[in-house]
Amino acid sequence: MAVVFNKTQGLTEKEFHYCPGCTHGIIHRITAEVLEELGVLGDAIGVAPVGCSVLAYDYFNCDMNEAAHGRAPAVATGIKRALPDKVVFTYQGDGDLASIGAAEVVHAAHRGEKITTIFVNNAIYGMTGGQMAPTTLVGQKATTAPYGRDESLCGQPLKVSEMLATINGAAFVERVAVDTPANIRKAKKAIKKAFECQLEGKGYAIVEVLSTCPTNWGMTPVDAISWLQENMMPYYPMGNLRNPWEVE
């Protein structure tokens, strides 16, 4: 028998600290596989966020930086400007990127920084205990929205990919999900393109990954996948919003 699936060299041996069924692990794996498949693991420098994936620096088997909350795109900018030949990426959650780091991601895209962002949207603050995020759906309960997100007070959830797709410097923008094996394979393809976008010097690239948070959503991992499909997918449609190769 031939091995058809084995753990990638792009990940360290460290066990993920994530809760059972948390899809961060899937997104870590496909990102690491892409780095390995593109042969850039030795040139990769990643930037971890603050949030559940704060310890991502322990899991990716490449040089890593831990940024202040939301500042990963600024840190990545500093790295890429100093080492333009290296492959620089940020891995950020929705509290980190869409709230406190909104300015940093918008302007990294706006400058067309040749970096790649993996943006994990699970519609909640996970690490701090299930508080409302800019991406929390209307009516969705959170520990700081105990009656559900009230649109009249908190607005509608921020559609980060659509917003960034209005920026010319954002060369590659795609929203994917990791709810099924088929979608995971699509997500990996998008992440690969997002790194190729950087390798070809085309500009800023971001992949928004719809993800689950069984613990803070208060569901089993299997129910959380269904909730993502039924509630997040209609509001956050999947698909490519910017593709530098189609433009040419």
Partner: peptide
Amino acid sequence: AESEVAAINMVYGAAGA
């Protein structure tokens, strides 16, 4: 940079490099 906050974090990145 877009702000002083971003500028110092770019410094963090470059210094780390």
